[in-house]
């Protein structure tokens, strides 16, 4: 009785009633996510930004994540609709105005993966891949990771994730989780330029993180989200306007030392996580990059790939 379709195949009424019932099941990479809490801004967002994603109006099986977008449970003096993400465990949830439901939705999914996923080593990183393997970019917020991820998509890479590298326990293979790329403030026009206007979601204005927009995952990214990849390049990018382009090859230990802290569940998984992170370097080489523009970062990556190939040959 339950069928998997794309969001774009569903009517607004169907989505609304499924969200109300709390029975909307969103399939993304290795996770099945049950979403509840209907609001117009969320439906708009799903229809726009998740249009190509696989969903079920009624779940055919149990799920990894239950995300409830509900009203904040506080007594308020003035009534104004608000929303908080509730992933089923206690999280610091900021009540957001209902127009920011998309943000609450994205935050809720991120929290669920960061804090509750144990089946993969989760590393705060952007990941893209081509037929030769994956590029993992681990960086702090504001270091240009999202822009770089978006730029690599235009170079023929497919999107794995903008937020989390999911590293398989045991085989250290990277798992796609093609969620939309989150763009903040000044990166929005840059990516709009790169990707084209039709790939950018409407802007959520005045959020706690400033203006936010999303670059949608492409249908091809979503349809290949079962295809895993081995890492070929591990990057620690740093963007600062006007910076001279620079790259430095890191030895394995130094790279491990920088990846461990970027993992949200390393301590939780212990030895399995250490071994998986170590195994990433069976095929991958690591670089630290700094650059002042997207073009520079792309040519640094080309150089790094060339060096890696030369070394292998």
């Amino acid at each position: 009785m339950s069928t998997v379709t794309r969001v774009s195949d569903l009517s607004r009424r169907e989505i609304r009633s499924s969200l109300r019932e709390g029975s909307l099941l969103l399939h993304l990479g290795p996770f099945a996510q049950l979403i509840s809490g209907s609001s117009d801004p969320l439906i708009d967002f799903l229809q726009d930004t998740y249009r190509d994603c696989q969903v079920e109006l009624f779940p055919s099986d149990v799920t990894d994540v239950h995300l409830n977008l509900r009203a904040p449970n506080i007594l308020r003096k003035f009534f104004r609709p608000q929303v908080v993400p509730d992933p089923g465990f206690e999280v610091p949830a900021v009540p957001l105005p209902i127009e920011m439901a998309p943000l609450a939705f994205e935050m809720g999914l991120n929290l669920s993966v960061a804090l509750k996923c144990c089946r993969f080593v989760t590393i705060h990183a952007g990941v893209v891949a081509d037929k030769d393997g994956a590029i993992l970019m681990s960086a702090e917020s504001g270091s240009g990771k999202s822009t770089l991820t978006a730029a690599l998509l235009e170079r023929g890479y497919r999107l794995f994730s903008d937020e989390f590298a999911l590293v398989g326990l045991g085989d250290a293979v990277l798992q796609p989780y093609p969620r939309p790329i989150s763009l903040k403030e000044e990166t929005i026009p840059i990516v709009r330029e790169l990707a084209g206007d039709e790939w950018i979601s409407p802007i959520v204005k005045g959020s706690p993180k400033g203006d936010i927009a999303y670059r949608r995952a492409r249908r091809s990214d979503i349809d290949q989200s079962h295809k895993q990849a081995k890492a070929k390049l591990i990057l620690f990018p740093e963007f600062e306007p006007g910076m001279r382009p620079y790259k430095r090859r890191l030895n394995t230990a130094e790279a491990i030392l920088r990846l461990i802290p970027a993992s949200t569940n390393f301590g939780l998984l212990g030895e399995q996580a250490y071994l998986a992170i170590t195994r990433l370097f069976d095929d991958a080489v690591a670089y630290e990059l700094s650059y002042g523009s997207t073009e520079q970062s792309l040519s640094l990556i080309d150089e790094a790939l060339q060096e890696r190939d030369d070394h292998a040959a």
């Binding site: 030895n251 394995t252 230990a253 130094e254 491990i256 030392l257 390393f266 301590g267 998984l269 212990g270 030895e271 250490y274 071994l275 170590t278």
Partner: peptide, 17 residues
């Protein structure tokens, strides 16, 4: 589990993770 580089050792302790 230990990984050596340049006379320094990255040591992962299994019990404490």
């Amino acid at each position: 589990i230990a990984t050596e580089f340049d006379d320094t050792y990255l040591v992962f302790v299994k019990a404490s993770a």
